[in-house]
């Protein structure tokens, strides 16, 4: 099926889809902001973040804001290109199935 080979297994989970969508339109987004936007619990988000980081789709930055540690994320160029391909694939599949 046309478009099918463009789908990326890494984006099959809803959480990863959400994380990437947010990072496509925002530069650095902190962990707490991400959690709030996606209405998620701690454990759930962390594992998906790790997976995306392993693929080099996102960048992670840790710093201190006052005394509190804060972790922020940003999509890499590779991550953005791969995600665009994935969206493109989804669209093609939908058009062909109409």
């Amino acid at each position: 099926m046309k478009g099918f080979n463009q789908l990326n297994k890494a984006f099959e989970s809803r959480v990863r889809l959400g994380v990437m969508s947010v990072l496509m339109v925002n530069d650095w987004v902190s962990y707490s902001e991400m959690k709030e936007l996606l209405s998620l619990t701690d454990g759930n988000l962390a594992s998906h973040i790790t997976a995306l980081d392993k693929l080099n789709y996102i960048e992670i930055e840790k710093k201190f804001v006052g005394k509190k540690p804060q972790t922020s994320y940003k999509a890499t160029k590779l991550g953005k290109t791969e995600f665009e391909k994935h969206i493109d694939g989804l669209e093609k599949l939908l058009i062909n199935n109409k």
Partner: peptide
């Protein structure tokens, strides 16, 4: 399968809008 793809796209759009 088609419904899932459609929901995925809707989710992507919603998250992009809501976060920016």
């Amino acid at each position: 399968e088609t419904n899932k793809h459609l929901e995925d796209l809707t989710q992507i759009r919603t998250m992009m809008e809501r976060s920016s």
